[in-house]
Design a binder for these strands. Sequence first.
DNA 1: TATTGTTATACTCTATAACTATA
DNA 2: TATAGTTATAGAGTATAACAATA
Lengths: 175, 175
Amino acid sequence: MMPPSPLQKTRAGSAAPAAAAAPERRQPAAAPAVEQVDTGYLETLIGYNARRAALAVIERFMARMAAFELKPVDFSVLSLITHNPGITSRQLCNALGILPPNLVGMINALERRKLIARQPHPRDGRAVGLHLTGTGRKLMRDAERTAMEVETEATRALSAAERQTLIRLLKKIYL
Amino acid sequence: MMPPSPLQKTRAGSAAPAAAAAPERRQPAAAPAVEQVDTGYLETLIGYNARRAALAVIERFMARMAAFELKPVDFSVLSLITHNPGITSRQLCNALGILPPNLVGMINALERRKLIARQPHPRDGRAVGLHLTGTGRKLMRDAERTAMEVETEATRALSAAERQTLIRLLKKIYL
DNA sequence: TATTGTTATACTCTATAACTATA
DNA sequence: TATAGTTATAGAGTATAACAATA
């Protein structure tokens, strides 16, 4: 997806030593060169850190879910259908922040793969209820187990308590 | 950017009560309707929470930075140049996970706005050092102050200690 | 009149191949 | 030969307008 890059840290405020190999010569007032990139300032920002962390986890998630031919958004859609049988397209859009025109293709593709089936909505003739097929249920059992494995791998550096804390604090940001 | 949607919570595992208004009638084996979308399962996943949180903060960030005509990536680029005068395009790409072809247009646009200037690299004839202009420095003083205000707004629900903890845990995920 | 699902379409973001000039 | 910067271009993701069917 994106080369995450080591992001080596230096403490902020340093003016970058120009030439490490020639310490004796007085340099003219030339443009300095950067030896080690200082990302200290950006790393103080919640948005920067949250995005980097999300990308790191999602990259790992994508690698593992490729076996099921599921992108993160496909997994999210199937997961919501799994736990909300009969959910409508509109409800999916609202829950996931997807615009209706962009969901149509995903739903059609999942239906072509026989993972989901459309059924008439019991009380609203405009809406269509979405349901997993047997094949879909089987796939999602495996996919959700894999998702849990990804969780374990991605949060390997965290204790169980830290993992709980992280999720609690993230929810306080976006809820 | 994206309607974040309230994301009302219900506890997981419920099979969705079909008709709230007609409790007496025995319903035929029809497709159920979903009254309240249950996102409980997705909310147990770090990737989901990190992405939602990142989008929430970035949305707020974009709204405030529009006054400076800076998108998040522009701010990141200018901020790295600010704290690393003489940084090269390649170093920017590595630090931010941007592919070189996609950085060219951004750099050109910032140069056209007289916010940055290219200077020859002191030791590598292929590379170009990037520097802020006076205008760029002035803009970034205001922009970084605004970024700090966004931090305060976005983490309003967190204590200072929680904010520190959140950043520390996020770094453990992606570093 | 408002809403669900849909089509068409545009815009942005991200990714790959290939070129040039310098090392 | 390898790397920095660049061009062109393809693909994925996200956005708005407008329509038919139903409420």
